[in-house]
């Protein structure tokens, strides 16, 4: 059981609220950079690169996309779990608008849960993009 001490504001992780979107951003950026490098002349003209005649992404970049996506989903699931646990602390339900450290804690958890859900959809969309359109043209 959480005690008041556990709920002190110094111990409240606030970073978990934007964290899921940071996961999305990292996934997005990693996919973007990987695609840009493999399609661009600096890396893409090396053997296996897509810019040299070979216009479809294959092999290593696709493996990388897979790794990025799986890692992001794992991280998001962990954040969903954290958020859900904070959200369901005790037996209160939303709107979490009481003037108490517990409701503040639940609110943070609930926001994290929702944001992680959104991030999960966004990561899936990015993954759809890179796996459905594997072309550098």
């Amino acid at each position: 059981m959480m005690t008041l001490e556990h709920l002190a504001e110094e111990r409240q992780p606030v970073w978990i609220v934007p964290a899921p979107l940071v996961v999305w951003a990292l996934h997005f950026l990693a996919c973007y950079v990987t695609a840009a490098l493999w399609c661009g002349p600096a890396v893409g003209t090396a053997p296996g690169g897509a810019a040299l005649g070979n216009t479809a992404l294959a092999g290593l970049p696709l493996a990388l996309f897979t790794i990025y996506t799986l890692a992001s989903m794992l991280a998001l699931l962990a954040l969903i779990r954290m958020g859900y646990r904070a959200h369901t602390l005790g037996d209160a339900s939303p709107p979490h608008d009481a003037d108490s450290p517990a409701d503040r804690h639940r609110f943070i958890g609930y926001a994290t849960l929702l944001i992680a859900g959104l991030s999960l959809v966004a990561v899936i969309y990015s993954a759809m993009a890179v796996f459905m359109v594997q072309t550098c043209q």
Partner: peptide, 19 residues
């Protein structure tokens, strides 16, 4: 730009409609 890049940004542009 490469098709895969276009696709990636197209996907994020759809996602932003949800919130």
């Amino acid at each position: 730009l490469p098709g895969v890049t276009i696709a990636l940004f197209s996907a994020a542009s759809e996602a932003v409609a949800i919130p």
